[in-house]
């Protein structure tokens, strides 16, 4: 790249087929794509277009049938299960549509979880938790359990958990789907702000026009292929 940014994700003719006895379904049919650090990108497309499968391939949750995927110059598609687990822990943050949090852990413990997996010391963990809770405006919620806070607050905590371990990439799969539009918009604004402040790369799989409005790049998938890749300059 010649814009001064590093390449974070490189997908090269990535294909994914699912087999059920004799039936073969091609979910991803040869995607070539590069995502740079700091992007705030929306991957859009109708249901069945291959968005979630593509996300799973990038993060190593599934292996491609053909093609190669590099994430931070590491060939994800060839890693072992254990290597992938460690790689995701250290380099990828996840935000799902709902039920992101472990309900029996407090807000603080949920955010700490990945740092525990990373083996960070308690002081470091607690310091980061305090800081990120302040950033997402949820100070004082440390001891609350997820079922005792609202859906929007739960998604904020999920964002905090995804970001607190300082990964290079945040994958967000329909993060606003279960929220009302006002809460969803506030959440997206917060993520956009965090993206600008931290330089973390956000990749959204979404149907939500609000995400599309805020993204500086919109990739459209259809039938497992990239049919449009639009870069936009936003204020």
């Amino acid at each position: 790249m010649n814009n001064g940014k590093e390449r974070l994700i490189v997908a090269e003719d990535v294909q994914k087929e699912f087999r059920d006895d004799d039936i073969v379904v091609a979910a991803v049919r040869g995607i070539d794509l590069t995502v740079e650090t700091g992007e705030f990108t929306a991957v859009v497309g109708p249901s069945g277009s291959g968005k979630t499968t593509f996300f799973n391939l990038i993060s190593g949750l599934e292996r491609p049938t053909a093609g190669k995927i590099w994430l931070k110059d590491q060939l994800v598609s060839k890693m072992s299960g254990r290597e992938l687990a460690d790689f995701r822990r250290d380099h990828v943050g996840f935000i799902f549509q709902a039920y992101n949090l472990i309900p029996v852990l407090t807000v603080e413990e949920n955010i700490e979880y990945i740092m525990l997996l990373q083996g960070l010391a308690k002081e470091e963990r607690r310091g980061r938790v305090r800081k990120i809770l302040a950033e997402i405006g949820m100070e004082g919620f440390e001891r609350r359990f997820p079922p005792k806070i609202s859906g929007g607050q739960q998604q904020r905590v999920a964002i905090a958990r995804a970001m607190v371990s300082r990964p290079e990439l945040i994958l967000a799969d329909e993060p606003t789907a279960n929220l009302d539009s006002q809460t969803g918009a506030a959440l997206l604004d917060m993520m956009r702000e965090l993206n600008r402040k931290t330089g973390m790369t956000f990749l959204f799989s979404t149907h939500d026009p609000m995400v599309r409005e805020r993204a500086d790049r919109v990739i459209t998938l259809k039938d497992g292929r990239v049919v449009e890749d639009e870069r936009r300059a936003l204020n």
């Binding site: 993060s59 949750l61 299960g81 254990r82 687990a85 460690d86 995701r88 822990r89 250290d90 943050g93 996840f94 799902f96 039920y99 992101n100 472990i102 979880y113 990945i114 997996l117 990373q118 958990r161 995804a162």
Partner: peptide, 16 residues
């Protein structure tokens, strides 16, 4: 199931 999926996705090893 979903919760196990989440904790595996965020980096918990199978042994965990």
């Amino acid at each position: 199931m979903f919760e196990f999926g989440v904790i595996r996705a965020v980096g918990t090893r199978p042994g965990g």
